[in-house]
Design a protein around this nucleic acid. Sequence first.
DNA 1: TCTGGGGTCCTAGGACCC
DNA 2: TCTGGGGTCCTAGGACCC
Length: 379
Amino acid sequence: MRWTIYVDIDAFYVSCELRDRPELAGTPVIVGPDPKLGRTRGVVLSASYEARAFGVHSAQPVAQADRLCPAATWLPADFRKYGRISEEVRAYLAPRGDRAQPLSIDEVALELADVDQPTAEARAREIQQGLRSELRLPASLGVATDRTVAKIASDRAKPGGIVTVPPDQIAAFLAPLSVRAIPGVGPKTAERLAVAGITTIADFRRAPPGRLRAVVGGFSHELIRLAEGHPLPRSTADEAGPRSRSAARTLVEDIDAAPELRAVLEELSAELTRSLREEGLTFQTVTVGVRWSDFTRTQRGRTLRAMARTEGTLAAEAARLWAAIWAEEGLPQHRRVRTLSITASHLTPGGPSARSLEMFVDDGPRAPPHRAARTERPP
DNA sequence: TCTGGGGTCCTAGGACCC
DNA sequence: TCTGGGGTCCTAGGACCC
């Protein structure tokens, strides 16, 4: 039988920092911009379980976390370090299963083909101990014959535990859980389900399918199957490279000064161009996003006629899109800007063929490549 | 006391094509 | 005068995840 061991590092950023600061183990530690060092609009990125006991949690505004837990040690985030350690975890796990699929910076689904349950459980224990002793990282593990169930199990195992769900117990394991336990069911979906009388996974089996479909659309089939204990295997395809790259900046204060905003946009263009170049990615679509002072968002994008990779193209397109947003929604409504972002998408890895590069093709009117191709092949 | 940054996927309408 | 069915891509917005 095929088993999945879902590995989730506990309080990942904090645990990475504790490797360098072992004296802080067992104390409240928060990774994020220290509110005592000045005004910031940041949020908690990761909190130790000792800090969580005070009500601190990730994505919480740092001022609020500071009030809840004034004794916490604050550490600045070091994403390069976390990326390196994430690679260590992947390298540790890869030889311990038949397939190791990274699903985020701190999660890996490890597949074991043709093993029985005792073997899978023993492997999970070895891995947990090895991560602890060799990488000095605490982990929670879920063990199941389905990846989604294994992930849900790893959530129930936190912190530092292992939860196994045998295949004939999937439905019973899931039944009492909140619909929020399912990856993909967030606050909005949970609220709409609650209005329809669905709060636990067991309720999916009782709800009229038509009603469920009206709330969650095509997701309903998958949810019913999950509640019945026959989860659909998630597609394990893709791995086709990144879909988008972006850069964003939240301003210290909301502003409506056009020259300053243009300057921020140029900085973002330069940053994004740099990271695309480092990865050897070319882009074809540019999107500018604005978060206004009321926290609503507007975005505008355009697909270019050809692949591009230069800062000039990115900056010019971003400036055009920004000007349109500002003229239509900023100026006339006297709105102020909180956050600006630029996203590059329709990415292509490696060097594109010279033929398709912007330097050989004028950036003409918008016309996606497939249409250009079709004109070369008359019906 | 507010609410980061970097991502992914889905939906719905319109344009366009056969 | 009325008006197919199936498909792809673009765009904007929304929800969700870590």
